[in-house]
């Protein structure tokens, strides 16, 4: 699943470049320009993919390591 999540993130980066309706000024629901509507949906898709990332690609190892006990650092 981790690979699927990373694949979806790359896909999101690609479909952000929506050149296919670059000059389409149609109004969705009578008020929302199509380009703005698409990118609003894009924001929702991004949230959904990040939810998948949290579920299936969470860096649990680093979290566990950090919470295994504080150590003194360098020069603070």
């Amino acid at each position: 699943m981790k690979k699927v999540v990373y694949g979806l993130l790359i896909l999101l980066a690609v479909i952000h470049q929506d050149v296919w309706w670059w000059d389409n000024g149609e109004l969705v629901f009578g008020f929302m320009p199509l380009g703005l509507f698409y990118h609003s949906l894009y924001s929702c898709m991004a949230a959904a993919v990040w939810a998948m990332a949290v579920k299936w690609a969470w860096p649990g190892d680093i979290e566990q390591w950090a919470e295994s006990g504080d150590e003194a650092g360098g020069e603070q």
Partner: peptide, 30 residues
């Protein structure tokens, strides 16, 4: 598209890929 939708992807990526690791080092080493 210039700033908002791209930030939805990129900001969250920074939090997920870099932020959590930075937090872990901050927590571990103070």
């Amino acid at each position: 598209g210039l700033m908002a939708s791209s930030s939805g992807l990129i900001h969250a990526a920074c939090f997920f890929l870099v932020g959590i690791r930075m937090w872990s080092f901050g927590k571990k080493y103070g």
